[in-house]
């Protein structure tokens, strides 16, 4: 029997930069049991992606994989081989420097309190606006329905996303 055995390396394109990562348990490697959140944070040092519950139940680890918002804490890194990942650090132009319009809208509306849920919420909002540039308020709420914010920044967040959409259109 010949299977598609695990490759010795995987290729992750993160925020436009391609990383060739060895598969293994070492500190700079990606182990088969590592989640994408873990790899982003521990191996690549991109700590903007937050781990809130580590079970896919709070949305704070949301990143874009091939443009879609997914939960990086319940995604295996080895299953992202060849894929393109965008994290909060990849937003803006240039990335990580001047804020993206959606980030600017969050600044303008103080659409956060403690800020721990913010990267995940911004990534999900980004995915929504890419697909639905002029969403109805209820679409914004639905798109963010898996995101836990304990401070209750919801009202400001909805305003910010709607404002960003308005600006974009």
């Amino acid at each position: 029997m010949s299977y598609v055995k695990e490759k010795a390396t995987i290729t992750l394109t993160v925020n436009g930069e391609t990383h060739e990562l060895e598969v293994g348990p070492g500190p700079s490697q990606v182990a088969p049991w590592h989640t994408l959140a873990q790899t982003l944070r521990e191996t690549l040092g991109l700590t903007g992606t937050k781990i809130g519950c580590d079970h896919g139940g709070c949305g704070s680890c949301t990143v874009l994989v091939d443009g879609k918002a997914i939960l990086s804490c319940i995604t295996l890194s080895v299953e992202c081989d060849g894929k393109s990942v965008t994290t909060i650090e990849g937003l803006g132009s240039p990335p990580g420097r001047a804020p993206d319009p959606i980030q600017q809208a969050f600044i303008d509306h103080t659409a956060f309190q403690c800020g721990f849920c913010t990267p995940g919420i911004i990534m999900a909002s980004k995915a929504l606006l890419e697909k639905t540039p002029s969403p109805h308020e209820s679409e914004v709420k639905d798109a963010l329905s898996g995101h836990f914010c304990r401070c209750i920044s919801h009202y400001h967040v909805v305003r910010a996303v709607m404002a960003a959409a308005k600006k974009g259109s």
């Binding site: 029997m1 299977y3 598609v4 055995k5 695990e6 348990p25 182990a31 088969p32 049991w33 590592h34 989640t35 295996l76 080895v78 299953e79």
Partner: peptide, 21 residues
């Protein structure tokens, strides 16, 4: 998570072979 190996299946047949093996 505790360690495990990871294999990509290329077909349903492969997946079943892997389960068996």
């Amino acid at each position: 998570m505790m360690p495990f190996d990871h294999v990509n299946a290329g077909s349903p047949g492969e997946a079943v072979d892997l389960l068996t093996s």
